[in-house]
Amino acid sequence: MKEKFSRDIIKLKDIDKTINDICSKLKQDVHQVLKRRGGVIGVSGGIDSSVTLALATKAFGSENLLGVMLPEKDSSPDSKEFAQKLTSKFGVKVIEENISGALDGFKCYQRRDEAVKRVIPEFNPLTDKMKIVIPEELIRKNLPPVFHVTVIFADGSQKSERLPMNEYLQIVAASNFKQRSRMSMLYYHAEALHYAVIGTPNKHEVEQGFFVKYGDGGADVMPIGNLFKTQVYEIARYLGVPQEIIDRTPTTDTYSAEQTQEEFFYQMPFEDMDLLWYGWENGYTASEVAPAMNLSEEAVIKIFKNFERKKKTTDYLRRPPIHDYPC
């Protein structure tokens, strides 16, 4: 029988068992299926890569892991500090590979900034910062999000404009060089050590398509791929991930101006999204979910439709190359 929907429904009932189950599958997958002797993890100082590293340490022992920090020009300096604290806490060797040079080679920044300047000609990439956001007034209109570019000028003033299609596509395509360059570097180290690349996306990222195909979506295993964000936090606290990392607001760390994951993609707080997604995925009706969420049934129906649409429209990202062609 289905458990009554409540705000506690996704709380991990037996955290020890969940952790042990994940670790034993991770070990089995890497050693027995992939035949690799350890793992490489890109550490960003964020909660997901931190929990992934903590779990992998439990599975393989710190001596069979390598943490790789992959900063670039737009990365927050905090990321490095947090990543170092994390790897030192778990005794994992960490190296730094700055990918700014590779990104310059790809003209990542140049291609992105050209598109921004076509929309906001006053943008000066040398002095100003930029990010992509979904404006507050467009959230929950039951339409797919339309993105704006926001430029924060050196004097602190801001300008925001809706992105036309070509400029939006160019900015995203250029920015995706970052995740794809990181993936290349992680595979370099993984192959050099005969390790597997341990990916860090959580359940929402995988299922709502909040990852870059062959970028952060390019990995051999994704041990937290079935965990809701609030469950990731539960495990973080249990395994002793440093408090500063737990307290940090999740950002994309992709654009020069700081951008939260909520304003870029999810459009609602994680605590709510986890529960609503669970309700939708497990066939709870809007009338069962609405009271616990303090929302109207109509609002829940809209959110469920939005989830359905997101899953459908991001199928492309999860799809492997199609190779079943006739011979």
Binding site: L143, P144, L169
Partner: peptide, 17 residues
């Protein structure tokens, strides 16, 4: 058209144009 997954974000941007 959006609920049915015929159109997505890109579709909406293209439609505006």
């Amino acid at each position: 058209i959006f609920d049915e997954g015929i159109f997505d974000s890109m579709g909406l941007l293209g439609l505006i144009n």
